[in-house]
């Protein structure tokens, strides 16, 4: 089979760039640990409260250490359950200090949902049977929309809350 000289140059350059690109991706994933979330932790979707993290009293934002937080959430059609505040009202807004390390843990008792803090790389599929989790540093102050970005039914677009990163 005959390859034109220019085609050889073109393919050599193209494949070379491809290999370099893949090496960078692999370096990020395996050396820097930037894999997308994949912990494979399972849970009974019909009984998520059985898990310590998702008992009603453990939902929402918890400070575990200086600048370390955990956010446990039950995502269900069409609501994110962050637990209740002191007055017993559902929490619809969380505030995190800038620079804090936050571990998000999310489960669903019904259908598939998305969990995306818009404009950031906090972006997870939430599937029945699995705990989705991701640890991030929140470095950019501002108000973010946390929303469902996987279709979950007729109220899908009404499934949101807000997250504020303050200075």
């Amino acid at each position: 089979m005959h390859f034109h000289k220019f085609e050889k140059i073109w393919l050599t350059f193209g494949i070379g760039a491809l290999v370099l690109f893949l090496v960078i991706l692999g370096y990020g994933a395996f050396y820097l640990g930037t894999h997308p979330q994949s912990h494979g932790l399972t849970i009974d979707p019909q009984n998520v409260e059985a898990h310590e993290a998702f008992k009603p009293e453990n939902l929402g934002l918890t400070k575990v250490d200086e600048d370390r937080y955990i956010v446990n959430v039950v995502a269900s059609a069409f609501n994110y359950d962050f637990g209740v505040d002191k007055e017993g009202n559902a929490v619809k807004h969380i505030e995190i200090p800038k620079g804090a390390t936050v571990l998000f843990q999310v489960v669903t008792p019904d259908v598939i949902h998305g969990f995306n803090i818009a404009g950031t790389n906090v972006n997870m599929m939430v599937e029945p049977g699995y705990i989705s989790s991701m640890e991030v540093e929140m470095n950019q102050p501002g108000e973010y929309t946390l929303l469902c970005n996987e279709y979950c039914g007729i109220g899908h677009h009404m499934m949101y809350t807000t997250v504020e990163v303050y200075e």
């Binding site: 193209g14 494949i15 994933a29 979330q37 994949s38 399972t42």
Partner: peptide, 30 residues
């Protein structure tokens, strides 16, 4: 890729395989 239940190494292997279609795509463009 953003699903919780699949091993990340296998995700990466399939990412590499995905990018192999770039080769016939470059051939096509040429």
């Amino acid at each position: 890729l953003t699903e919780p239940g699949i091993d990340p190494t296998w995700k990466f292997i399939q990412v590499v395989l995905t990018f192999m279609v770039i080769i016939p795509s470059l051939m096509t463009a040429f």
